[in-house]
Design a protein around this nucleic acid. Structure first.
Lengths: 207, 207
DNA sequence: GTCTAAAAATTATCTTGATCATATTTTATA
DNA sequence: TATAAAATATGATCAAGATAATTTTTAGAC
């Protein structure tokens, strides 16, 4: 048997690293297999010895680092309104997002909207449901600690979580699609204030 | 000079018709020049005698029917809370949107999120600003008629309009990206209730 | 009525990216 | 040291956008 046992593993790992880096920076569509393989110091043909397809690569890259994602960390972190606000703030901070070097549910949520690929859409749904669940948990926990200013039953918590996510995704999608820096800030701010108000926190001044 | 004067015009018009139909149904990325030209009963090569690029075709298709768009009609329609609610309802109704046969700002807003093409992004921004302005106008008009339940100054109207649009775009984007019909309805409903509450209307029961 | 040349349309070609098939290189072990 | 299976590389195919080269069309000159 040629090659040491770990040779292929190392190659695959290199491909995965390259893919993660490029996908996070540019998104699924704007990254080519060729780019990934060049960064991994191989030629394009070798790719299919390691992955079924480009989608499979994306999925692998996503799943590999899921645990280390900020929402993963957040799910385990102690509860506080401050943390929730920080979540919103992080998600709304486009620069931080685009500089992220690990794929994460939030990352997919904002980067892979409207993909034609069934597999990417499945990851999208998974990410959406995951982030939604985290939001619900945190809001529930806060409400049990009587830290929220609204009456929180299960239904209203679920509805608020969905409304928050819709605002987040919409504002970020719009912000990423328009040129005007001013308007970008305004829509992100409007969404942030709306989210804070959904959490029962009074509005902050424009950042 | 060969061909009657209007021959080319008619061909161009046929291309435009085909493009409008296909783009509205499937969006920019999922439609090929070949498809458009086949529907227009020509071969792909003829395309570039009529349009600079695929983007130019999209733009032309968009601009051609802009006046007839629903947001155009809505901007001229009489003001009422009912109309505003209907706007939100229409925008949230995915089926109606996807069956639309004319391009419209709303259509672009939901179909062309995150496009790589600079030209499509410019149309996106234009559409966003247009719909935003319409929202602001209508909310302002309603507030002057004292029909709203919140104190409406210019700033809060602008902020509310942005928050509404973010919710709309986010909810529709998510709804289009996920498989579960249940969750689709829930996120759309959450967004709708949120929008109604931003307008000062009490929540409706789930549709 | 025919002929002609500019306009319109078709067909062939180029490019890039995903995918696949074939060829080549690599290296553990017989 | 030779070998063969595994890993990688090279080259081909296919689709889609874009261009080039070629053919078809027909208004208007004769």
């Amino acid at each position: 048997m040629p090659y040491t046992a770990e040779h292929k593993l190392k190659s695959k790992e290199r491909i995965l690293q390259s893919a993660t880096e490029l996908f996070c920076r540019f998104g699924f569509d704007k990254v080519s297999i060729n780019q990934v393989m060049k960064l991994a110091k191989m030629t394009h043909g070798a790719f299919y010895a390691h992955f079924e397809s480009k989608e499979a690569l994306y999925k692998a890259s996503f799943l590999q680092t899921l645990d280390g994602s900020s929402s993963g960390r957040l799910a385990k972190a102690p509860f506080s309104i401050g943390h929730l606000i920080q979540l919103a703030h992080n998600l709304l901070n486009l620069r931080a997002l685009s500089e992220q070097t690990r794929p994460s549910p939030e990352n997919i949520l904002f980067n892979e909207i409207g993909s034609d690929s069934t597999e990417i859409r499945q990851l999208y749904e998974k990410s959406y449901l995951g982030v939604l669940k985290i939001l619900e948990k945190r809001i529930t926990a806060l409400s049990k600690l009587n830290k929220l200013s609204f009456v929180a039953n299960q239904k209203s918590i679920k509805e608020r979580s969905r409304a928050i996510l819709a605002s987040l995704v919409g504002a970020v999608a719009i912000a990423k699609s328009i040129q005007s820096e001013d308007e970008r800030q305004r829509i992100l701010n409007a969404a942030q204030n709306q989210i804070l108000s959904l959490l029962g926190v009074s509005e902050l001044s424009a950042d």
